Simulated assay, not measured.
Amino acid sequence: MKKLLLVAALLVAAITNAQKGSFLLGGNVGFQSEKIGDSKSNNFEFSPKAGYQFSERWTIGVEGSIANADAAGFGKTEKYKIGAFTRYAVPLSEIFSVYADLGAGYQSSSVNDAKGMYAKLTPALFINMKRGFGLNFSIGGLNYDNLDGKNDPRQERMGFDFGKTFNIGISKNFEL
């Protein structure tokens, strides 16, 4: 974990020393509640992102995620992710841009103290509102993750959920 924090600190330092451009803050918040018979589950996730846009099309930065799940009969689960991302954007007009985020990093889960890695590729649409605020829309992508628990076998997942999920996020660009 100390090595991961050192890598994140070095990445932030590299971002702040890049050529002048804009600093990006953004993220997503999600909540899901499900009830089947007497069984109920609640899921909450917060995924912030910070990056430096060093050219008109390229952004690099750090991302994270905190997720809590509470399912009757299974107890509470906490999941954490921290990693880096790179974004390639293509402006279509002053209002619209399309972009793809490629992110990878470390993840952990409170279930059996599991740890692992993740990688994801997410195409999205950016709508520039006003004063650097924007909305981000994505409808899935390609993802991979793995987890190794203390008493569980290794879990590996690969998914292609393009068109199956829908995410809305908000971002703010700050001029330096």
Rank of each mutant, 00 (worst) to 15 (best):
M1Q: 12
K3L: 15
L4N: 03
L4E: 07
L4Q: 07
L5G: 08
L6Y: 12
V7I: 15
L11S: 14
A13T: 10
A14T: 11
I15L: 13
T16K: 06
T16D: 02
A18D: 08
S22W: 09
F23L: 12
L24R: 13
L25H: 05
L25T: 12
G27K: 05
F31Y: 15
G37C: 11
S39Q: 14
K40A: 14
S41F: 08
N42C: 06
P48H: 03
K49H: 07
K49E: 12
A50M: 14
A50H: 03
E56M: 11
I60T: 10
E63R: 11
G64F: 03
S65T: 08
I66E: 02
I66Y: 15
A67S: 09
N68V: 11
A69K: 10
G73M: 05
F74M: 06
K76G: 03
T77F: 00
T77K: 07
E78T: 11
K79F: 06
Y80R: 08
K81P: 01
K81H: 01
I82P: 00
G83Y: 04
F85D: 02
F85L: 05
F85K: 00
V90W: 15
V90F: 15
P91C: 08
S93M: 02
F96A: 04
A100C: 06
L102Y: 11
G103C: 02
A104Q: 03
G105H: 05
Y106I: 01
Y106F: 13
V111P: 00
V111W: 03
N112L: 04
N112Q: 10
D113I: 01
A114K: 02
A114R: 05
K115L: 04
G116S: 04
M117H: 05
Y118F: 15
A119F: 13
K120L: 07
L121V: 10
T122H: 00
A124R: 04
L125G: 06
F126Q: 13
F126E: 13
I127N: 05
I127L: 11
I127M: 08
R131Q: 13
R131C: 03
G134W: 09
L135G: 07
N136H: 02
F137K: 01
F137D: 01
F137C: 01
I139W: 12
N146C: 05
L147W: 03
L147M: 02
D148N: 15
D148C: 02
G149S: 01
K150N: 10
K150T: 08
N151L: 09
R154K: 15
R154V: 06
E156F: 12
E156M: 12
F160G: 09
F160E: 10
D161M: 10
F162H: 08
K164P: 04
K164F: 10
F166M: 13
N167F: 09
N167D: 15
I168R: 04
G169V: 01
S171C: 03
S171A: 06
K172F: 12
F174S: 04
E175G: 01
